[in-house]
């Protein structure tokens, strides 16, 4: 069982702050690192993987500093996001080389085991240059698993995978998490993270925005103030009726759009009450559309929460 501790870590590149005072503890089980593109997920993973020093703060594995410490790789496997591998090797040769580089006693057997785990034996003797994206991803996985590490870091592992490959990899990671390994993967897709990770860390604009199980993250995301654009047969009467209800916090008559802009603070109640209120005032709803459903706005809300 291994734990990665990030304490008040920041990392900047020149004037750009990529990671801003993040403190997170990643323990056994599957953890998802969620955030929009460019949020600093890769920078954070690179710090955990020992490829970047934090500008300030510390990043440790079981209390040992990770930066400039090659010995941590005995316990850590890394699946990088980038495609490049030793393309002139076959999958088997590549995994074998990784086993040898770890100094394992029986690298051949370890390589074969890792290839079996990711179900790549059938193509193991083909050159990597002939592999599809999903096959590459699985061989990368095998190379990271070859020494049976207690920590596995994966940077955007599902990018470019088809649904079947995605399910396969999810199942594999789930098993590893259940076996007590510390598995951390990054993704910018909430549904992906939700399906797999019992625990989610949200990173937005380099800051640690939220932390918890997916239900808590979901709730944070759905409980936030929602904005709606509403058109009806009598906007003013509807506005008066809605502001009297507890579910709303603000209503604006948007004259140019000829519509109401409503800010709902109780999402559940608002969605139930809106049709009821309209009906009781004999108003017909013509348009009800959420006006800020983009992932970015969801994330930016989380930062301020």
């Amino acid at each position: 069982m291994s734990t990665i501790d990030i304490e008040h870590a920041s990392r900047w590149f020149g004037n750009v702050v990529a990671v801003n005072d993040v403190s997170v503890r990643i323990g056994p089980g599957v953890t998802g690192l969620l955030g929009p593109n460019g949020a600093g997920k890769s920078t954070l993973i690179n710090m955990m993987g020992g490829f970047l020093a934090p500008s300030v703060g510390t990043v440790t594995l079981d209390g040992e500093q990770i930066w400039r410490n090659e010995s941590i790789y005995r316990r850590m496997g890394i699946v990088p996001e980038r495609e490049a591998m030793y393309d002139f090797l076959t999958g088997r040769e590549f995994v074998l080389a990784n086993a040898e580089l770890h100094g394992l006693d029986d690298p051949g057997a370890a390589g074969a085991r890792a290839l079996a785990t990711v179900e790549m034996e059938y193509a193991a003797d083909r050159q990597i240059s002939t592999y599809s994206k999903g096959m590459r991803q699985r061989v990368k996985m095998a190379s990271a698993l070859v020494h049976e590490p207690s920590v596995l870091l994966l940077d955007e592992p599902f990018n470019g995978m088809d649904p079947r490959q995605r399910m396969q990899l999810m199942e594999l990671l789930r098993q590893m998490g259940a076996a007590g390994r510390t598995v951390l993967f990054s993704s910018h897709i909430l549904e992906e993270v939700e399906q797999l990770a019992a625990h989610i860390e949200v990173i937005v604009a380099g800051r640690h925005a939220a932390s918890g199980d997916f239900r808590r993250i979901r709730r944070l995301m759905t409980d936030r103030p929602h904005r709606y654009l509403i058109r009806s047969t009598d906007d003013r009467a509807l506005a008066a009726a809605l502001i009297a209800d507890d579910s709303t916090a603000g209503i604006e008559l948007d004259w140019s759009e000829k519509a109401l802009r409503v800010q709902a603070i109780d999402f559940g109640r608002f969605t139930r009450e809106l049709p009821r209120i309209a009906r009781s005032h004999d108003i017909r709803l013509l348009t009800v559309s959420p006006s800020d459903e983009s992932l970015e706005s969801v994330f930016s809300y989380l930062v301020s929460a």
């Binding site: 993987g49 090659e70 890394i78 591998m85 080389a97 580089l101 770890h102 100094g103 190379s143």
Partner: peptide, 15 residues
């Protein structure tokens, strides 16, 4: 250049 050096660097090998 292509980043494949990561497979050497992520091993308990002296630089």
């Amino acid at each position: 250049d292509d980043g494949s050096i990561v497979y050497l660097l992520s091993k308990p090998l002296k630089r």
